[in-house]
């Protein structure tokens, strides 16, 4: 009897995963990077399976990435983009989940604007559920694709200094990255104005910096987060202009990081606010387009691994 290398029914978050489980998913993704770079980008292993992407919150890139991933593996991919108003008016989340379940999905990919909403659905359905982002809680495939990007560029994750910068408070990307990177042995810093850093983040294993320059000092990876414009109207940050002055990543600022520091951003970017175009488009430092590429590969790996039991494959 051999234990499965990834013995979980769902992927709801990266919190609590063992380092070898995360590494296994990253290793599995490598083959898909290779396939995706070839001309015939197709593998039929999910043929006949129905993948339902239920996005209760607007998304372009993540939805597209999951759709491409599923199609390249041969799944029948169905997208349910929910106009937020119709769901709010109509049936409850659980009723929606039961409806999708009755249509016999083989795997569900779910995004929702409330923390914990994907857990709620996962409890009610018979198929594996992949969290594509729930509120401020987690966005596990983003954490995995960031880890894969770093590992491929730097050759390792253990021992690296990673600065996660900007609106950490509202960011599920930050949380999944903190879990993944600390689990894999990186030194993680969170950097931002005190109004955008969550309480108790140190106890998740991250160091807290409110001084951007100090947080960047010697960092091997600088991961910028998107700051939503409506949060820069005086409630949490005085203005976009001030945010850029204090926490915007400019060419000058990035010099504080390690000489070969990698610059990342989960997208979509506010150019000129949290990151300058000169940095985002820097052909040497910037890994931003590579992150998008790794996203498809990581999602293919997750779809493959989570549907193995259903396909009668042991491990």
């Amino acid at each position: 009897m051999s234990a499965s290398p990834f013995p979980h029914r769902h992927l709801l978050g990266l919190a609590g995963l063992h380092p070898w489980e995360i590494t296994y998913l990253l290793d599995e993704a490598e083959q898909w990077v290779t396939l995706n770079r070839g001309t015939a980008k197709h593998d039929g292993r999910l043929a006949g399976l129905t993948q339902m992407n239920a996005f209760f919150e607007a998304s372009t890139r993540t939805l597209l990435s999951f759709e491409v991933a599923g199609k390249r593996l041969g799944a029948d991919v169905v997208n349910m983009a929910v106009a937020q108003s119709s769901v709010k008016k109509g049936e409850t989340l659980i009723d929606t989940a039961i409806t999708l379940n009755a249509m016999r999905a083989d795997v569900m990919v779910i995004r929702h604007d409330r923390s914990g909403a994907v857990h709620l659905i996962a409890d009610k359905v018979n198929c594996p559920v992949l969290n594509a982002g729930d509120g401020r809680h987690e966005h596990p495939t983003q954490g995995l694709l960031d880890a894969l990007t770093i590992r491929r560029r730097k050759g390792r994750i253990e021992g690296l200094v990673v600065a996660i910068c900007g609106d950490v408070l509202h960011s599920r990307v930050a949380r999944s990255n903190i879990h993944a990177l600390t689990t894999l042995g990186a030194e993680v810093r969170v950097v931002g104005p005190p109004t955008l850093l969550p309480a108790g983040v140190e106890r998740m294993g991250a160091q807290r910096f409110t001084d951007f320059d100090a947080g960047l000092d010697g960092a091997d990876v600088v991961m910028m987060l998107r700051v939503q414009r409506e949060r820069m109207d005086g409630a949490l940050v005085p203005s976009a202009r001030e945010f850029h002055a204090l926490y915007g990543l400019t060419h000058k600022r990035v010099e504080r990081a390690a000489p070969d520091a990698l610059v990342m951003h989960p997208g979509p970017m506010n150019r000129g606010v949290e990151i300058d175009s000169a940095v985002a488009d820097d052909p040497v430092r910037s890994a931003i387009t590579e992150q998008v590429e790794m996203g498809v590969a990581v999602r293919m790996a997750c779809l493959d691994v989570l549907t193995r039991e259903r396909r009668g494959i042991a491990a």
Partner: peptide, 15 residues
């Protein structure tokens, strides 16, 4: 309540 648990779960919290 503001603190580790609320931060891990990504829940809006107050001190």
């Amino acid at each position: 309540t503001d603190g580790e648990t609320a931060t891990r779960l990504g829940l809006p919290a107050a001190p």
